[in-house]
C-alpha cells in the first residue's frame, strides 16, 4: 500500500509539474499581471472547448486515425444545432440535444465513409473539412446562427465547468471501464493481434468516430455559447480549432506516461492556454506569442522524445570509466 501511494503521488507530481512550472514562471516575470484567480478561471473557461475537441480527437488518435474534420463538424453542429434549437424554441436543452445529434450524425458520416472508402484518415478528413465547411452556406439562409441572452449561459462559470466535468467523466469511464475503451486501446497498440483475437477494427473505428461526435457536439454548444454568433467560414478556417486541440493532445501524450490520457490532455490544453495568457501579461505581441508557443511545444516534444537520453549517456560514461579502470588494472 505504501509503495502504491508513493508511486501514485510521484506520478501526480510529474503530471502537474509542467503547468506548475509555467504558472510560477509567469508569476515571477508577469509584472503582477499574471496569477490572479480571475485569470485562472478565465483560462480554465477558455480551455473547455479545446479540451472537448481534444477528447474527441484523442479517441480517434488512439487507433491511429487523424481527424482534421473535427473543426468542420463543430462548425456544422453549431450552426445547424443552434438554428434548430431556435426554430423549435427549446432553449439550452434543445441546443445541447440538437448540437449533439448533429455532431454525432456528421462524425458518423465521417466514420462510415472511412470504412467504405478505405483511404487514409488524414486524406479523408482534410477533404471532408471542405465539405463540412460548405454545408452552413446552404442551410438556414447561409447566415449562420445567432443566439443571445440566457442561451449563452453555458459559457460562464460554473456552468462551463459543470459541462466539462460531465463530459470528462463520460470519456474517462468509457475509455477505461468499458469493453469499447479497452478495444480502442488494443487496436491502437496491435491491430493485427487484436483482429485475430476477434475484434472488428472497422466497427470499433466507426464507434470511435461516433463517440467523438458526442464531444464535438458539446464543443459546438460551447462554441455557440462563447461566441453568440457563428458565421459560415470557408478556406479550411475550421482547421485552426483542431490545431489548438492538437497541441493539448501532444502534451497529453507526453504526460500519459504519468497519468490517464484524458487527464493529460486536459492538463496539456490548460497549460497551453495559460502560456498564452502569460505571454500577454508579459506584453509580447501576437507574433512573438505565436513563435514562443511554437517553440514551447517543440521543446516539450523534443524532451518527450529524448527522455532518458541524458541519464543513458551518463550511465554509458560511467560504464566506460569502470571498464577502462579494470582494463588498466589488469583485473581482466
Amino acid at each position: 500500500m505504501g509503495t502504491k501511494f508513493k508511486d501514485y503521488t510521484l506520478r501526480t507530481i510529474k503530471s502537474l509539474l509542467l503547468p506548475i512550472m509555467v504558472y510560477v514562471f509567469f508569476l515571477i516575470i508577469g509584472n503582477e499581471r499574471f496569477g490572479s484567480s480571475r485569470q485562472m478561471i478565465t483560462i480554465a473557461r477558455q480551455s473547455v472547448m479545446p479540451v472537448l475537441i481534444s477528447l474527441a480527437i484523442a479517441c480517434n488518435m488512439s487507433i491511429g486515425m487523424w481527424d482534421f474534420s473535427a473543426g468542420g463538424v463543430v462548425a456544422v453542429a453549431s450552426i445547424v444545432g443552434g438554428n434548430l434549437a431556435k426554430m423549435t424554441g427549446t432553449g439550452i436543452p434543445g441546443m445541447i440535444i440538437f448540437c449533439m445529434i448533429v455532431g454525432v450524425a456528421v462524425a458518423s458520416f465521417t466514420g462510415l465513409l472511412y470504412n467504405f472508402m478505405k483511404v487514409p484518415s488524414i486524406v479523408l478528413t482534410i477533404g471532408l473539412v471542405l465539405v463540412y465547411e460548405t454545408i452552413p452556406f446552404f442551410v438556414f439562409g447561409g447566415g449562420g446562427v445567432l443566439i443571445s441572452g440566457k442561451m449563452t449561459i453555458l459559457a460562464l462559470a460554473p456552468y462551463c465547468f459543470i459541462v466539462l466535468a460531465i463530459m470528462f467523466a463520460i470519456f474517462y469511464v468509457v475509455f477505461n471501464y468499458t469493453p469499447f475503451g479497452h478495444n480502442v486501446r488494443a487496436l491502437g497498440n496491435g491491430q493485427l493481434i487484436a483482429r485475430n483475437a476477434g475484434l472488428n477494427p472497422g466497427k470499433t473505428k466507426l464507434y470511435s468516430f461516433i463517440f467523438g461526435g458526442i464531444f464535438l457536439g458539446m464543443a459546438a454548444v460551447m462554441n455557440l455559447s462563447v461566441s453568440g454568433m457563428i458565421k459560415p467560414a470557408a478556406g479550411m478556417a475550421s482547421v485552426a480549432l483542431v490545431f489548438d486541440s492538437m497541441m493539448g493532445i501532444f502534451i497529453g501524450l507526453f504526460l500519459s506516461k504519468y497519468c490517464n490520457l484524458a487527464i493529460g490532455v486536459t492538463i496539456g490544453t490548460f497549460t497551453m492556454k495559460m502560456l498564452n495568457t502569460g505571454l500577454i501579461a508579459v506584453g509580447f505581441s501576437t507574433t512573438i506569442r505565436e513563435i514562443t508557443t511554437g517553440l514551447f511545444l517543440l521543446i516539450i516534444l523534443g524532451v518527450s522524445s529524448n527522455q532518458g537520453k541524458i541519464s543513458e549517456w551518463k550511465a554509458k560514461r560511467q560504464r566506460a570509466k569502470e571498464a577502462n579502470a579494470k582494463y588498466a588494472a589488469g583485473t581482466m
Partner: peptide, 29 residues
C-alpha cells in the same frame, strides 16, 4: 477575454473586424 483578465484598467477596445463570430462574439465577451 485574456485581456480583460490581465488588464483590469482596460477602458477602450478597438476591433477592426474579421472574426468568424463577427462583432456579436465581442459583445458576448
Amino acid at each position: 477575454q485574456s485581456f480583460a483578465a490581465t488588464y483590469p484598467e482596460m477602458d477602450g477596445i478597438i476591433v477592426t473586424g474579421g472574426a468568424g463570430g463577427g462583432t456579436e462574439s465581442i459583445y458576448q465577451v
